[in-house]
Design a protein around this nucleic acid. Structure first.
Lengths: 199, 199
DNA sequence: TGCAAATAATTAAAGCCTGTAAGTTTGTGT
DNA sequence: ACACAAACTTACAGGCTTTAATTATTTGCA
């Protein structure tokens, strides 16, 4: 029988698609092999092991996400950039739940620093150019934004917001409004409680 | 040989401890049985299946978390309450990574609404009593707070903040300061961009 | 063109996990 | 004591992972 033409890249993409269909946790080497009409053992010529496959899917997702974020950020600034960036994350998670789940696995520090922390933090930092934030605060703000975006998407998709009458799209929108205000009123580091300078 | 004295509750607690030790994803019915010096099949008299075990651990974690949060909130208000509540989440996740991971699995709407969404949202809402927020905004704020807390803890534990020089404890502290400010300057729903009234 | 080396897959097999069914042991209460 | 129910074990079937050995297919170079 003809060869299937497997490569690590094709397998990774197929695994990502499969994850979006059946859930990341259900993606197995066997299921993937089945999709290619091939025996499971055949995949081990291209993948080190199952974990290697998961990591590759995670990297794929993180890269796709960063690419979209970069595109969304182009030509935008301030709240416009904030909203565009945030929606990229949320939309991606809705469109590709399996990939998004993959993006959450723990990566070795090396990989994480590069593809995950690195590029994403870089992009988030770009949003802040529209809000004048001095450096250590900028890092804090990057972390807060990343946390809120990821947290919202994560809680929303795992059903943690319950079926409360308040529309989650509206809460999302108001959350972005709030973050915009927050970035414009970022509190000074000083220990004293603090005030409210207008932008 | 003497009986092991298994019950769903003991198994659930043991599974939670095991999860904290070896990671939630590595908790298997077999490993759990081994810990009790019993054959895997014996557990099926107390658990429906492996998923049932996972859900029980998730419920245990959510309940413990809510109990701690409730205790932390007692007698506190305003920023004091906000900080205490947030630290309960973060500390719990650090102390019990396996349980925390379990708490993130998808639950059926029924369960989620009760134990997860229900009680936790209730407690988060309690924090807001110190900040006068009218009702639909209150729900939005509850979602934002939950998102940020969970998101921060999640990104921190999966290494997403990289090994940036900025101390994550400091960023956390500044994040809480920022949220406090935000709750005191919650933007009005109006579509118009919007300003900064002093507290 | 033709064949040898490299590459791609399959077969085979061991080990671990889930889950069911049937048998055996242990406790309990009358 | 004994009979019954509950708690466990044995036995098994079926899946998934991964390695090693074997077969088939390309490729490229003589």
């Amino acid at each position: 029988m003809a060869r299937a033409g497997l490569t690590a890249e094709r397998l990774t993409r197929a695994a990502a698609d499969l994850a979006d269909e059946i859930g990341f946790e259900n993606v197995t080497v066997s299921a993937l092999a089945r999709g290619f009409g091939v025996k499971p053992a055949a995949l081990y010529a291209h993948l080190k092991d199952a974990q290697d496959l998961r990591v590759r899917v995670a990297e794929l997702a993180l890269t796709e996400l960063a690419d979209r974020a970069a595109a969304a950020l182009a030509g935008r600034a301030g709240k416009d950039a904030l909203v565009a960036f945030a929606n990229v994350y949320r939309d991606y998670a809705k469109e590709h739940p399996g990939r998004y789940a993959a993006a959450q696995i723990e990566l070795d520090p090396q990989t994480a620093a590069t593809v995950a922390a690195g590029r994403h933090a870089e992009l988030t930092r770009a949003i802040l150019r529209g809000y004048e934030l001095p450096d250590p605060d900028q890092t804090d703000a990057v972390r807060l934004l990343g946390s809120t975006f990821h947290g919202y998407v994560s809680l929303e998709t795992t059903g943690r917001f319950g079926r409360h009458p308040r529309d989650v799209d509206i809460s999302w929108s108001r959350t972005l409004d709030a973050l915009d205000v927050l970035l414009r009123h970022w509190p000074p580091a000083a220990p004293g409680p603090h005030p409210g300078e207008s932008r």
